[in-house]
Amino acid sequence: MDEELNNPKYEIPPEIQHQVAITTVDKIYNWSRRNSLWPMMFGLACCAVEMIGAAASRYDFSRFGMEVMRASPRQADVMIVSGTVTKKMIPTIVRLYNQMGEPKYVVAMGVCASSGGPFKEGYSVVPGVDRFIPVDVYIPGCPPTPQALLYGLMALQEKIDQQSIQTVRWYKKGDSSPIPIPVLGPDLMDPRDFDLIKRRAQENLQMEEQVSPTNIEEADSHVG
């Protein structure tokens, strides 16, 4: 066990030094968690290829505890969102996130996952996965190099070091409701926004009623 972890404020009798270690619960808990972060085997787009590159022999992220990639969300600790998140895919991603057991972390790899990236303006791209699920670490780059991914994962480890079991989300009472799964309607719909959508649709209706016949064409083309 490393020096930092074994940081007793108590005096240990000389005869059992090196046999007994005293530390805090937080520290031992965080230490064991940060060193076995299993990513979910889950590739979305181009960034996934660099993620595979980071797992392969030249970069090899298992040196840092990202030992095995797991295809099942139930066995994974960290979801690396590696690529463009589309409207068609986001219900699945949210479902996968809900299926992961706590404690769980999300890394947004690349600009697409962080904000939509080069495809942000597109009609079927979600501008950032953080619109739906909470993200712990953002890694810029298109695609981020494997080194950048490693750095991001180490940043996540540092973040874990800062946590305390008194305040973490998953030991709190009544805070475990899953994230509502988005619905594919005429466009993507977040169930949390239904009221807003209704209001907007009403406004659209009123607008359409108001426009004079000469403007109708313009409004039509706008709605598509």
Partner: peptide, 12 residues
Amino acid sequence: KNNVQYPAAFDP
């Protein structure tokens, strides 16, 4: 928010 469009009088 999310900047999406819905048809007029649409009820989710």
